[in-house]
Structures are given as C-alpha cells and as structure tokens.
Simulated scan of single mutants.
Amino acid sequence: MRLSTISYFFLIGVNLLMSQTDYYFPERNSEWQHKQPTDFKIDSEALQAAVDYAEANEYSGSRDLRIAILKGFEREPFHKILGPTKKRGGPAGMILKNGYVIAQWGDTKRVDMTFSVTKSFLSTMAGLAEDRGLIANTHDKVADYVWDGTFDGAHNSKITWEHLLQQNSAWSGELWGGKDWADRPPRVGGIDDWKFEKPKEPGSVMEYNDVRVNVLAYALTHVWRKPMPMVLKENIMDKIGASTTWRWHGYDHAWVEIDGIRMKSVTGGGHSGAGLFINTEDMARFGLLFLNNGKWKKEQLISESWIKKVIEPSKPNINYGYMWWLNKKGDRHWEGLSEDIYYAAGFGGNFIVIDKENDLVVVTRWLEPNKIEEFMTKVNKALK
C-alpha cells in the first residue's frame, strides 16, 4: 500500500521531531541511566580505547593545585594565590549519547577546581541577563550599565558586552589587585615593553586575560544586583537537577556593596585560585543543557538565540565565541572532526565538549591538555 504524499511527509516530520527531542534527562539525586554503546551502533572496543587513552594521559602538573598554579603562571609579575584552591583527584570523565551514559571513568562525584571552564558558566550569566532584558543587547556599551568608573575614559568607554565575552575588550586597569598588563605577558620583550604598551582597539585582538574576565563578572554582578552563584543556582543548576556540592568562589578580598548588601564578585577562572569547583556529573548536566539548545526537558532555560550567539566565531579569532571554543578551521581546529563542535576548556585538562552532530556530550578531567584532539579523534572513531 502506497503512502499518500501528505502521509509520507507527516511521518518524516514526526521522525524528525522525535530525533530532535529524544534525549534522556537525569533526575536529581538519582542514578544516571546507562546504555551500552552498541545500543547506538557505537563500537564498544574503540570507545573503551578512548577511555583508556584518557586515563593513561593524566595532566602532568602537581595534584596539589596550589603548586600547579604557582608553577603554571610563574612568569607573571606579582602573581600569587588570592582565592581558595583544592587538591585534585585523578582522571575522570563521562560520555553521553542522547543524554545516556555510554562511558564513564574515575570518580565522577568528586568536586574539583575547573579553572577556565568557569568562563562558559559566566558567559551563560550574560545570556540569562539578555534573555530577561537586564541587558538589552550584547552590542551595548558596558558603561551604559556600570557607571562607577570601571568603564570610564576614552578607551574603556568603547567596550561592549560582546568585547568582554569574546575576550577582545583590551580593558585597561586594575581589579582586585590584578593589573591587566601583568596577566599572561608575551614571551618576547622586557617588562617595560609591554607594561607601557598602548591598549589595543576593543574588538580587534583576542587576548586571554583573567583580569578582564573578572571585570565581566564584576559588571554582571552589578547588572543582576546579586551574586553570580545565586543567579546560576536559581536559574540553571537547580533546574537541571545538579548536586548541592558545587561552589563558585571569588578572591578572598573581592567584595562589593550593591543596594547596601555586601556580596562577593566571583572569578571567571582559577588563575589565582577561586573559580568554579564542581563534579564531573554536574558538568555533564550543564553540557546536556547546551546540547539540547538551552532546553531541559520541556523548559527553555536559555534562549536558542543566545546559544546561536555563543557559537558565532569572533572576528579576531574564528575559534572563539562567547567564552566557548569553536572547532572551526583555525589555529585550534581538531582535524577530521565536526566544525560544529564547541567546548569549554580549563587549565589542567578540564573539558566539556558539545558535539551536536552526533548528539554527544563529552566531559573529561585532568587530561594532558595537548591530548584532547587525539582523545576526541578516538571517540569519533568509535562512532564510525
């Protein structure tokens, strides 16, 4: 019996709808459902080889992260620990297919520092602010929202929210004792060569700089008029069923008063301590939210329009969006893997990888950072 044209396209539409929404979302405090890789026609042996690779290539820095941080940033003048640190565990990770766990290793409930993965959480706070109209548009100048002097002057007054989110603001100044020029100095030239260098035009050059990221956290704290951990908890983490074990720290002295209330301004990483301390499973939940275009079950927590902004390449760096790395054909391209992949990345080998093409979320922790491309290549091989 032949299907009518209308019936045929109706069935195609139903199948497409099912493929777009057929994700599993774990409940809070429940065992995350596992499935065999073969349930999705994934090669079990090849996937195990990827897991073995992750376990065999542990980050080479000290497990005492206070030592690892001081060693990792020893070139920076005035660098010191300003916030909490925590000794880390060993390699850990999870691979989700359609939300189900198809591979898992290490202690996934252990809370560890996550360093610059925090930036992708911070970016989401800006997204929520735009979704709720607290920020009209990321192309707006930050000085129109924060008028306490942080964005005064001929240079800083040009800076937009997008500049801060794409790390090309070239914000000039000092925050919590950190000087913008002292963060990640260039490999060539003496201190006077770059200490007195004229700031670059906002939007022209990407510079990975934690002081400027912390300026974004400070500005968002003023816009929300409440601490960022509270915003994250109420709007994201509670709604995706995250544990109660994660913490988001600022530097010990990073206090600000807003509306007569004293609150901590958090950091966007662990460069000098602080940042997001979180377990692997909560990272995977956050990744699953992004895999499903900002929707958890039937609730749209982050707008799809924000997700599109997040993964739009910036002009100065095709591999960077709104504090997420993009697998475009640039300096950080993972050869042979989907260009639609995007990921959060942090010091010491912490990653949340979103592979929409294959309905995958991959979280891996304490993997030697230069091994991530090979690891993802091995995961991709298992899919084929």
Rank of each mutant, 00 (worst) to 15 (best):
Phe9Leu: 13
Met376His: 11
Tyr343Met: 08
Asp259Val: 05
Ser338Cys: 11
Trp181Ser: 09
Leu360Pro: 06
Val266Arg: 00
Glu257Thr: 15
Glu368Cys: 10
Lys308Trp: 12
Met237His: 00
Tyr8Glu: 09
Trp194Met: 08
Val362Tyr: 01
Pro77Glu: 12
His34Gly: 06
Leu220Gly: 02
Tyr145Asp: 02
Met263Gln: 14
Ser60Gln: 07
Ala49Asn: 15
Ser204His: 09
Ala54Gln: 13
Val231Cys: 11
Asn57Met: 08
Leu220Phe: 06
Phe290Met: 11
Ser265Glu: 02
Lys119Phe: 14
Thr221Trp: 00
Leu367Phe: 03
Val231Ser: 12
Tyr59Cys: 06
Lys200Asn: 12
Asn358Ile: 03
Gly268His: 13
Ile240Phe: 02
Lys41Ser: 11
Leu291Val: 13
Asn370Ala: 14
Thr377Lys: 10
Phe347Tyr: 14
Phe277Cys: 01
Met125Ile: 08
Ser44His: 01
Gln36Ser: 15
Thr364Tyr: 01
Asp192Phe: 14
Met283Ile: 11
Leu164Phe: 08
Ala274Cys: 03
Glu339Asn: 06
Asp183Asn: 15
Arg66Glu: 13
Leu232Phe: 14
Glu55Asn: 04
Pro37Gln: 12
Ser172Lys: 13
Gly13Lys: 01
Met263Tyr: 02
Trp248Thr: 02
Asp183Ile: 13
Phe121Asn: 05
Val223His: 00
Val379Ser: 01
Leu232Ser: 07
Asp43Tyr: 09
Asn327Asp: 05
Phe347Glu: 09
Ala68Glu: 07
Val146Met: 03
Tyr251Thr: 04
Trp32Ile: 02
Leu17Ile: 07
Gly287Val: 14
Val363Tyr: 00
